[in-house]
Amino acid sequence: MYKALSALLFIVLLLTGCSGMRVVDSQVNSFAPKAVPAGSRYRFERLPSQENNPGAQEQLEAMAEQALAKVGLVRDDQGASLSVQVSVTERAEQSAMDHPALGWNLGWRVGNGGVWMGRGPLFPGLDVRTSYWREVGLVLRQRSTQTVVFESRASHDGPWADSEAVLPAMLDAALQGFPTPPTGVRRVNIEITR
């Protein structure tokens, strides 16, 4: 009976560990040379390079629109006093993991996600970890003068491939403290669901 109860408890712990929250920790650097009043209206502006992939840019702008609404800005393509440029840079990097040997060196090694037999991996691919680096940028300009009134960048490096969940958290981090964010580089943690 105790074995069955222990097994059930172990399974419950595994499932709750997988269904919880995760933290997107971003390095943020913001600049606010001019005050932006709450309720200001904006429209998105695109660089020529962003016009090459309009679908991806529209998705990014939809994420940014939600983040900007949280800080009190209103999208108004006709009556906007501000223009907003939003950008993202993403890359995936694979790195080999270390493999400390366990046992009597009889041809088996186990460690850091890899199981090796002899000179090669027993389960190929478990010895490689993929890390996803992303950076989002926001630049707000006064449309009448093209003066930058707010600029912010947030970067994050982590194991999650799902940009559609990570990027909104990074945009929220980039806007933390808006319209007068702290000066200097800071770490901002945003919790999202798994």
Rank of each mutant, 00 (worst) to 15 (best):
S30F: 12
S30H: 12
S30G: 11
S30V: 13
F31V: 09
F31S: 15
A32W: 08
P33D: 01
A35T: 11
V36R: 03
V36E: 04
P37A: 10
A38S: 15
A38V: 15
S40L: 08
R41T: 13
R41V: 13
R43F: 09
R43D: 10
F44R: 05
R46H: 03
R46T: 08
R46F: 00
L47H: 06
L47G: 01
L47V: 03
L47R: 08
P48C: 02
P48E: 11
P48M: 08
S49A: 05
S49F: 03
S49C: 01
E51Q: 14
N52K: 13
N52C: 00
N52L: 08
N52F: 11
N53A: 08
P54I: 05
G55R: 15
G55I: 10
G55K: 05
A56N: 14
Q57K: 08
Q57R: 04
E58T: 15
E58R: 15
E58H: 13
Q59F: 12
Q59Y: 12
Q59N: 13
L60I: 11
L60D: 01
L60K: 02
L60G: 01
L60R: 03
E61N: 06
A62M: 02
M63Y: 04
M63Q: 11
M63K: 00
M63R: 07
M63E: 09
M63W: 12
A64M: 11
A67W: 01
A67K: 05
A67M: 04
A67V: 01
L68R: 00
A69D: 09
K70A: 14
K70Y: 00
K70L: 04
K70D: 12
V71W: 05
V71G: 07
V71Q: 04
G72E: 01
L73V: 00
L73E: 05
L73C: 08
V74Y: 03
V74H: 07
V74T: 09
R75T: 07
R75L: 11
D76C: 00
D76Y: 00
D76K: 03
D76L: 01
D77H: 01
Q78T: 06
Q78G: 05
G79H: 13
G79E: 11
G79L: 14
A80M: 08
A80R: 07
A80Y: 11
A80S: 05
S81C: 09
S81L: 14
S81T: 07
L82F: 10
S83Y: 02
S83A: 12
S83R: 12
S83W: 03
V84L: 14
Q85W: 06
V86N: 07
V86D: 00
V86Y: 02
S87F: 14
S87P: 02
V88I: 15
V88P: 05
V88E: 12
T89I: 13
E90P: 04
E90I: 09
A92C: 01
A92D: 12
A92P: 06
E93W: 00
E93L: 03
E93K: 12
Q94G: 07
Q94M: 07
S95W: 11
S95Y: 07
S95I: 14
S95P: 06
S95R: 15
A96D: 15
M97F: 02
M97Q: 15
M97C: 04
P100C: 06
P100K: 07
A101Y: 06
L102C: 06
G103W: 07
W104C: 02
W104R: 07
